[in-house]
């Protein structure tokens, strides 16, 4: 699944990037394969997303989140 499908409060680990090519800015901000992310909330209109990653808060649009493939931790 991809990051945009994650609901507020859920966590996941990045596995890679759809189409294999990630925007450089996402990588530099620390969104790399193996990184865990938590979705804190969505903006009032449902987009963009508010994430916690590497100890700080990052906001990205769902369109970008759709490029990021994730894996939910085993329950």
């Amino acid at each position: 699944m991809t990051l945009n499908e994650l609901k507020p409060g859920e966590r996941a680990t990045i596995t890679g990037f759809a189409a294999g090519l990630a925007p450089a800015r996402l990588l530099e901000m620390g969104l790399l394969p193996g990184t865990t992310i938590k979705v804190l909330r969505l903006a009032p209109l449902g987009d963009p997303m508010d994430l916690r990653v590497r100890g700080y808060r990052l906001s990205i649009r769902k369109a970008e989140a759709a490029l990021i493939t994730i894996e939910r931790p085993a329950p």
Binding site: P23, M29, R57, L58, S59, I60, E64
Partner: peptide, 9 residues
């Protein structure tokens, strides 16, 4: 463009 923005404390 992309919208990638830090939400600072």
């Amino acid at each position: 463009g992309y919208f990638v923005m830090e939400l600072p404390p």
